[in-house]
Write a protein that binds this DNA or RNA. Structure first.
Length: 520
RNA sequence: GCCUCCUUAGCUCAGUUGGUUAGAGCAACGGAUUCUUAAUCCGUGGGUCCCAGGUUCGAGUCCUGGAGGGGGUACCA
């Protein structure tokens, strides 16, 4: 008999004893979080009565008495079940049919065991949900990376550091939002279904809308919509949302990822650099403690063998001087760039000049940008949506922030000259590259032609930021359900058969038409 | 896409130059046990060694192909 059959028998055992294995359980709505109970007065006389609920994660059985560990989102507490303190037959039913992983609701008195441990001495216990599959053993954890990603629920259930990392992510995103709203930015939501995939260079996912018989793209960036809002008079806007790029997977890339984009009228790229280093320094102080060791500065994180310090100000280096330093190349001299590509074994054939420069930069400079560094003054050809710098029109008024060799943010002074923008769009379309838009976004040009105030915009890769702050080296560790190739899953829990009004069927058939909880 | 490494019980892992019936801990099952906490003690069951071929007297182990995953690389503002 396999483990699943044993649990089916136990579930039936609960039913036979009059316990619904899947009750609505609302009596525990008023339960106290376990951490709060555990911090309560265990020595009160008379003892405090408490209600707790959670998952059973350990069991120590003494025949007529039983210790359980109960865990909820806030923490863990020990339960003490004793036959004579519980209602008739309750102890026997639970002793015989309880499994690790089951959810219980418990009423009890807060007290201490002989060893002094704060414990809930149960006076009543209810099964709140039966677990039909053994969780990985808590003590050994779940180490297999594939299982942790495919079955994140199991990873979260047994590996506390996983849950902690995603709570840190949530808190960090809240802070990002609070920082911007504190500067009077307003948060907006723009379309993710785009008729033209613009605002970045990337291969898009395609999809189709039936009623309009329309080919659509999942957005590769929200940029062009957010700037339309600048035209409309929103002077400070931001969006936090998902972008989709149909490209390879790597420790730094997931096909869908979270981007913060923010646009700030009457400011220029320099202003975003200053604001960004302030934000990141604060985030490091507040959310990166798990990535630090004793004695590290409060603004620093560890990554591999490196200690990265987010203390302001960050380094500022121009693109040209970095390429000169690490590749001994003059980016403004095509012959010099070509020679560098040859030295580095980069295939120049079929690459536009700016792509070739970028390839040289990636191969030689990126790995050296470990400490937070703003790279500035990108060649203007690499900035199709940015203004040129008035001091040197060969370069855009643009920066990228690199940390640990990763691009974390990208910002510039936004091009608002409609004629210039149209010319650059037309040049992109002429290249006929899968990663460039296939047609000019004339509506965007029309918007610009109404007049867009001078402004600066920034995009921050939220997943990568969370990686840095939580000290992990793969993006899959900060995305709850990273993309994996699907595999067939066996069905070991057949739907109940027989009469539909039998007790064993319960309420399971009420939703068979597929109406979920969503609004419609 | 290419290179490379990994895949053994529910989980974490052993498994020698190819050699008897593939092991351990935890989990599970039966029993004992009224203060344990990785409880303890006695006993039991549990395997598509990722899949399919091949070599061999004999394959978890060697070879070929495939699948899934990790890393690298390519691609990637």
């Amino acid at each position: 008999m396999d483990a699943h059959q044993e649990r089916q028998d136990k579930r039936e055992g609960f039913r036979q004893a009059g316990h619904d294995p899947y009750p609505v359980g609302s009596a525990w709505k008023g339960r106290t979080p376990i951490a709060t109970v555990a911090a309560g007065d265990a020595d009160a006389d008379p003892p405090t009565t408490v209600l707790v609920a959670g998952r059973v994660t350990a069991r120590r059985d003494f025949g007529k008495v039983m210790f359980l560990d109960l865990r909820d989102a806030s923490g863990r507490i020990q339960l003490y079940l004793q036959k004579k303190r519980l209602p008739e037959d309750r102890f026997t039913t639970f002793r015989d049919n309880l499994d690790l992983g089951d959810f219980l609701g418990v009423t009890g008195e807060l007290g201490r065991t002989k060893t002094g441990e704060i414990t809930v001495f149960a006076t009543d216990v209810e099964l709140l949900s039966k677990s039909m599959r053994p969780l990985p053993k808590e003590h050994f954890g779940l180490a297999d990376t594939e299982t942790r990603y495919r079955q994140r629920y199991a990873d979260l259930a047994v590996n506390p550091e996983t849950g902690a990392r995603f709570r840190a992510r949530s808190a960090l995103v809240s802070d990002l939002r609070a920082f911007l709203t504190g500067l009077d930015f307003i948060e907006v939501e723009t379309p993710t279904l785009h008729p033209i995939a613009g605002g970045a260079t990337a291969r898009p996912f395609t999809t189709h809308h039936n009623t309009l018989d329309l080919q659509l793209y999942l957005r590769i960036a929200p940029e062009l919509y957010l700037k339309r809002l600048l035209v409309g008079g929103f002077e400070r806007v931001f969006e936090i949302g998902r972008n989709f790029r149909n490209e390879g997977l790597s420790p730094k890339h997931n096909p869908e990822f979270t981007m913060l984009e923010a646009y700030w009228a009457y400011h220029r790229a320099d202003d975003w650099m200053a604001a960004t280093e302030e934000i990141l320094e604060q985030l490091a102080i507040r959310h990166a403690s798990v990535a630090r060791q004793d004695g590290d500065a409060e603004t620093s994180v560890r990554r591999g063998g490196d200690r990265i310090d987010f203390k302001r100000p960050f380094a500022r280096r121009t693109y040209a001087e970095l390429v000169a330093e690490y590749a001994d190349t003059n980016i403004f001299d095509p012959a010099s760039v070509l020679a560098a590509a040859e030295r580095l074994g980069i295939e120049a054939q079929g690459k536009t000049p700016e792509k070739l420069i970028d390839a040289v930069f990636s191969a030689t400079v990126e790995e050296h940008l470990v400490q937070p560094t703003f790279v500035t003054e990108f060649p203007i050809e690499m900035c199709p949506l940015a203004k040129a710098r008035p001091e040197d029109p060969r370069v855009g008024d643009r920066f990228e922030l690199f940390v640990a060799g990763m691009e974390v943010a990208n910002g510039f002074s936004e091009l608002n000259d409609p004629a210039d923008q149209l010319a650059r769009f037309e040049a992109q379309v002429a290249v006929k590259d899968e990663e460039l838009p296939g047609e000019v976004d004339h509506d965007y040009i029309r918007a610009l032609s109404y007049g867009m105030p001078p402004a600066t915009g920034i995009g921050i890769g939220v997943d990568r930021l969370v990686m840095l702050m939580t000290g992990v080296e793969t993006i899959r560790d900060v995305i709850l359900f990273p993309l994996l190739r699907p595999v067939a899953v066996g069905d070991d829990e057949p739907a109940p058969t027989g009469t539909l009004d039998g007790d064993a069927v319960g309420n399971g058939v009420g939703n068979i038409n597929g109406t979920g909880n969503g609004t419609s």
